[in-house]
Amino acid sequence: MMLLVQEKATRTARLDIDQLVRDHYNQVFQFCSLRVGYHHAGDAAQESFLIAQRSLSKFRGESKPLTWLLGIAHNECRRMNRVAKREEPLPEFQTTGSSEANLVDRQVLRLALAGLSVEHREVVVMHEMDGLTYEEIATILSVPVGTVKSRLYHAFLNLRKCLQTSMEVQS
């Protein structure tokens, strides 16, 4: 009887972690890619899910599963950067989409992001690229929502300033 119950519990946990992988792997990968680089993002994402699997019983459901996963990924990326003794790398990306969006050159955007502080850059990445709400960012970073708002506004001001400067230089 005990074995049956244990097997059922294992199966339930298994289903849950599989579901999480299916639903959120891409988002976690992107999140990690912006922090540890595309080449290490696979390891970081996998390790984050393995940690999530071990900690699945501790998840109380107070936040969204994605927020919880990104919190784990955030810590894991920090750990990996610390172990590798490297600064948080600049995001490697290319812009796609409308012509209006392409008005901003990706290299310029990369440099503008590089000019931001770590705190400002991470809220920009989380909000604009990962699509997290202010509250979710506050949960992951363990800071008040007001701090997130303030950081995001000043990050955008700095980005705007950098981009304007670079465009002036180009023109």
Partner: peptide, 21 residues
């Protein structure tokens, strides 16, 4: 404009899901 640009960023194709499973 800036936000729209950032949202169109392509992160590259995720990999490693099968390995993770």
């Amino acid at each position: 404009l800036l936000s729209a640009t950032l949202k169109t960023v392509d992160f590259g194709t995720p990999y490693g899901m099968e390995e993770l499973q």
